[in-house]
Amino acid sequence: ACPVAPASRSSQEVWDSFSQCFTPAVREVVEFAKSIPGFQSLSQHDQVMLLKSGTFQVLMVRFCSLFDAKERAVTFLNGQTYSLASLRALGMGSLLDAMFDFSEKLGSMGLEPDEMALFMAVVLVSADRSGIVDVGAVEQLQENLIKALRLITSRRPDDSTLFPKLLLRLPDLRTLNNHHSDKLLAFRID
């Protein structure tokens, strides 16, 4: 929902407002995770580790709906639309390009909101396991969620390619994460 500043503001102010808008978005992913059946039966440590390694990827999926790949523009929830060119001033050009490509692919699948939510749950529990203690429990949860995601095939019996195509987005997201989660944010210290 966070507006990127109008042109009149300095790029530092643009940076500040862009950085600020990540905070509520991250909190929403934490709340979303807690609503995933089985997530809260993982240990708190493993919940935190999964969130730390998977939240950026879930955000990338959530932000897809803001990206208009055809128009090369982003529309924030407050209705403000910014062209890719104008957003490049934030110095996130490479991330934005990758986001447009990813959102084009994901968007073309035409998932329903509940299917997108199931996909985001799979994205979260498929995140990097390096800090996880009970890997078995996480893998069981992932298996259950992937089974649930097969919903998209039962809804489209004549399209058996959609499910595998969707799972192929997971490595895309991991690449996005590895390339871009080290982007810098800047917070004013008052």
Binding site: V26, V48, K52, F56, S181, L184, L185, A186, F187
Partner: peptide, 25 residues
């Protein structure tokens, strides 16, 4: 004077998650 704290997206995300879980303990 230093007016900004700079951190990576990943660190910012980790910070918020740690804060959230600590608050709900």
């Amino acid at each position: 004077p230093k007016t900004h704290r700079v951190m990576t997206l990943a660190d910012h995300i980790s910070h918020i998650i740690t804060q959230d879980f600590a608050r709900n303990q």
